[in-house]
Every structure is written in structure tokens, then in C-alpha cells.
Amino acid sequence: MSSVRLYLKYLHLHLLTGLQYKGWPLMVLQVLIVVITDPIGIILLFYRFGSIGEWSVERILLIYAMAVTSFGLAETFCRGFDYFPWRTIRTGDFDRLLLRPCSLFVQVAGSYFHIHRISRVFAGLGAIIWCLWRLEVELTMLHICTIGLALIGGCLVYAGVFVLTSGLAFFTIQSLDWIFIFTNASYQVTRCPIDYMPQVLRRFFTFVMPMLVISYMPAAAVCGWTKTYWLGLAALPAGLLFLLFATLIWRIGVRHYQSTGS
């Protein structure tokens, strides 16, 4: 419980720091523009050619928005892990964290926080609601729960990605760029209609990194594209599992750091 309190305290301080700089509304706007312009290519394409089979622009956008929102949540609340490989470990700040009698996990997660990152979440949520409205999905309690759980699960998956990256950063700092496949690139994948996705990729993004589990499956369940509704609820357990795995790697990394030093 004290960990949660400490984490909130960190967020509070970061919030104060952020507000010290006058430019923060501009930053919010900046992220918003990035988020909105990102899928514009698809939208234009669909606008010109209509839909691909039964894949309308709303469908694609819904799945995409699910992924983006999850990513945004993780990015907002676990920013510290996102920065960890590039900043914290290089500057030696990690030593400082090791000197404090509390969870390293909380300290790293709380080491950076940017309020403007949350605009990605709002943009994503807006897009989800718009898509559901256009697809004429009735918002029952069950559907709302499914989507909520999916977003939490998705947030955990992305948090897992950040934690995993940080764990690997203990072993190699230079060659970590490929990790972007899991972060920024991974939600681009969701823009590709699943029916046209190669089998290999589909398996990869289901069983290795559960991207589709947190975006396509809940969307399919809510919109009634499949008959197996329960698959849509798999997001949370999948996210938990992935995060657990990542935490394991992170632990190994910390141990490695302690035995090798800088």
C-alpha cells in the first residue's frame, strides 16, 4: 500500500514540475496532433476506395484506437521504464535508486511522468467511442467492462514492453533499437486487417506479444464479429502474464547490474 502512496507522490511531484514550465499546454497539443495525424493515411485511403471486404474504416480504426489508448496509458504511467534504458541507467541515477529502502519498480516507474502524454489516451478513447457509435454497437454494461478490461490489459502489455526493454538494457545499451518493434511499431500493426495478416505475424502478435488479444479480440467480441465472446476477456490475463514475464527479465537484469557495476 505504501508503494502505491509513494508512486502517487512521485506523480504529484512530476505534475508540479511540469507545471513549472509554461509550455505544457503546447505539449499537449503537440502530442494530440501526432496522434490524430497518425492514422490519417488509412482514413484517406478508405475514404477513396470504400471498405476492404467487410473491413470498414470504423473497424480498423476501432482496433487501432484500442491499441493506441493502451499504449498511451502505459506511456503515461510507466514513463520511467520507457526512459530507463536511455537516461536513468546511463547517468548513474540507478545507483541512487538502489540506495533507497523501497521498491525499485515503483521508483523507476515514477522517475518520469509527463502529463501531456495523457492526451494520447483521450484521443484514443474519443476514437473508440466514435467507432462504436458508427458501428451501431449497443453499449451494455458487459461491453463497457470488456473494453475497460481490454484497456487495462493493454496497458499492462505495454508496461511489460517497457519493463522488458529496461531489463535488457542492463546487458546491452547500444543495440536496443529493435525494441521499437514492440512499442511504436506494434500498434501500427493493428491497422492491418487481421484477415490479411500473414499467419506468422498473427501468431506472433497473439502468443508472444499479445497485441491482438488486447485490441482485435475485445473489439470483435463487443461488435459481434465472432461467436466466442470470452476471447475478448482474455486481454487482462494476457497482459498480466506478459508483465510477469517482463518483470522476471527485469529482476535478472538488476542482479546482473549489481554484479558488474556500470
Binding site: 505504501s2 502512496r5 509513494l6 507522490k9 512521485y10 511531484l13 508540479l16 514540475t17 513549472q20 514550465y21 533507497r100 529502502p101 523501497c102
Partner: peptide, 17 residues
């Protein structure tokens, strides 16, 4: 904390310890 009053850093340490 670089951008915050010293007091805030102390408050955080109070919670940490």
C-alpha cells in the same frame, strides 16, 4: 529535484523512508 523547492524533495524522502 532540480525544478522543485527543496522542501518537496524532503517531503518525498519522508515517504521513501
Amino acid at each position: 529535484w532540480w525544478d522543485l523547492p527543496v522542501q518537496d524533495s524532503f517531503d518525498l524522502l519522508k515517504d521513501i523512508y
